[in-house]
Computed example of a mutant assay.
Amino acid sequence: MTASHSKEDIRAFLIAKTGLNPAKAEDSSIIVGSGLVDSFGLVALLAEIEQRFGVFPDLMSLDPAEYATLGGLTKIVSTALNLPETEATPSSPAGAAATASSSSGPEIQRLAKGSPEWQQVPALMKEMFQGFAGQGLRLPLVEGGEKLWLQSLERLPESVFLVLGASVGGQLVSFASAHCKMLPAHLGGGMVGEISYVYVKPEARRHGLAGRMVAQMEDWLKSSKVRSIEIQVLTGNEGALAFWRRSGFGDELVQMRK
């Protein structure tokens, strides 16, 4: 499989995907952290490398400077292709998309792009942000923002994000999302996981849905080999703060806005 690829194939692929000018691209050209590819974009790029070449480069043990340039990342992918023991990381980590069954409430499923349940996510997100407004959120959801968020996910490979949900009678009653992103070089690089949103409609609460969705997201993120998992919680949402602390998350910082 690897014999059909060459270093030039990899280099040309990276130039095309990062938007470098082919006529000016050099091995020293910075592609990560230069505005061409940000931390979240790097994870998406790695997923596309996996799809094209069959390998998902492990950057965890590397200095960020080693993969910040066109030449550096080309070399890393080339090395991965030449190592017989290298195996591609599955685009959907084992168990991440599996349906969770429980007698204590609705089943939790990974929501597929374009599915009827996927199309119901914006309504729940809008409802969630309405609740945030009373808990101190100073950045309101823009008009149609819930749809813009979902559209942004639709442009990404499914290997870098996860959206879960549970339905009752065909109606979505909960959703949760998580994704992988790269830390900047000054924080050591490597991937971290972020749980973006967890929401359960009031009438579907007290069935353990939130806890079960979080457990699935943690399993998926850990299988993606993230260094840690982070969340953001509104300081005015005391119920959520208590929930996350019970789930093993510790307080780290307070974000302030003027």
Rank of each mutant, 00 (worst) to 15 (best):
I10Y: 00
R11I: 07
R11V: 02
R11S: 12
A12V: 05
A12Q: 07
F13M: 03
L14G: 03
I15W: 02
I15A: 05
A16K: 08
A16W: 02
K17R: 15
K17I: 02
T18N: 10
T18E: 08
G19P: 09
G19F: 13
L20N: 05
L20M: 04
L20T: 01
L20I: 06
N21I: 03
P22C: 15
A23V: 05
A23Y: 03
K24N: 09
D27M: 09
D27T: 10
S28F: 01
S29T: 07
I30H: 08
I31K: 10
I31V: 14
I31H: 05
G33L: 12
S34H: 02
S34P: 06
G35M: 07
S39M: 05
G41P: 08
G41R: 10
G41E: 13
L42D: 13
V43C: 14
V43E: 15
A44C: 15
L45T: 05
L45F: 04
L45G: 04
L45A: 07
L45P: 09
L45I: 08
L46D: 05
L46E: 13
A47M: 07
E48S: 11
E50L: 06
E50C: 07
Q51I: 06
R52Y: 05
R52M: 09
F56R: 12
F56A: 09
P57A: 14
P57M: 11
P57G: 12
D58P: 09
D58M: 08
L59E: 09
L59G: 06
M60K: 11
M60R: 15
S61W: 03
D63H: 14
